[in-house]
Design a protein around this nucleic acid. Structure first.
Lengths: 120, 120
DNA sequence: TTGATTTAGAACCATTTGGTTTAGCTTATC
DNA sequence: GATAAGCTAAACCAAATGGTTCTAAATCAA
């Protein structure tokens, strides 16, 4: 059982709530990169970028392996699964499937009316 | 094209990053409720709960309609679609489809080697 | 009209966030 | 050994978050 599932979701959603961190994740989906490479395009100081990576690490979205003086980061997308399933519960609502379901039910009712008429 | 798409994602992910706000969304997926009803189970003061609803409104996840002294809130799941599609880009990675793809490619290579041997 | 209900808003507070600069520690290179 | 590269840590700051309490306004009900 997952008692602190909520905390995980807190961390993941929080991590995703900053454009710099989403950018980092996107770049890591291509390849492993070290901090300098990650920080380079981020219009902020190196320590600031380093902190963002740390936030992603705490959310378990990034793993780090130290090779010499280089800290290589790689994506771990697993926690995104939890976030996705949470959101997924609302898919029907934004896709308007309820209306579509209504249409299907109307169709079924129409068919039953048709059969009833034929059976007469 | 959506220039401030990022800001929308910021707001949505930020809104989802607090358990109280996720709880509010879940309760609203059942039925429209006013602030008192929403605040009741939230182990915090009414103003605090009210602020959380306001955050959800700014993220366009909740709409409010005032009826007398009652502020009725209803879910608008549409912005969740953007969040879901952003996350969706990583589904392959957490589902390990790359490994599976690797296996498929290995299989193909093996077949080609087989054919090359037969052609000899 | 009086009084209770529902909500907003302001003031306040502690903590977190997101950024900076500076300093220092390893590790590689010359 | 000197110097550069890659990174952490600390100190600092402004602004945002998440909570509180108190006050006040609007609406409903007796």
């Amino acid at each position: 059982m997952v008692l602190n599932q909520g905390v995980v979701l807190d961390r993941v959603f929080r991590a995703l709530a900053h454009p710099a961190r989403r950018a980092i994740l996107q770049r890591l989906s291509d390849s492993e990169q070290n901090l300098t490479e990650l920080a380079a395009p981020l219009r902020m100081s190196f320590p600031a970028a380093s902190k963002h990576v740390r936030v992603l690490e705490r959310a378990k979205l990034v793993r780090r392996r130290v090779v010499g003086r280089s800290h290589l980061c790689r994506l771990d997308a697993a926690p995104l699964k939890d976030a996705a399933s949470w959101i997924e519960a609302y898919r029907q609502q934004w896709e308007g499937n309820f209306q579509r379901l209504d249409a299907v039910l109307d169709e079924l009712k129409a068919q039953r009316r048709g059969r009833a008429r034929d059976d007469r």
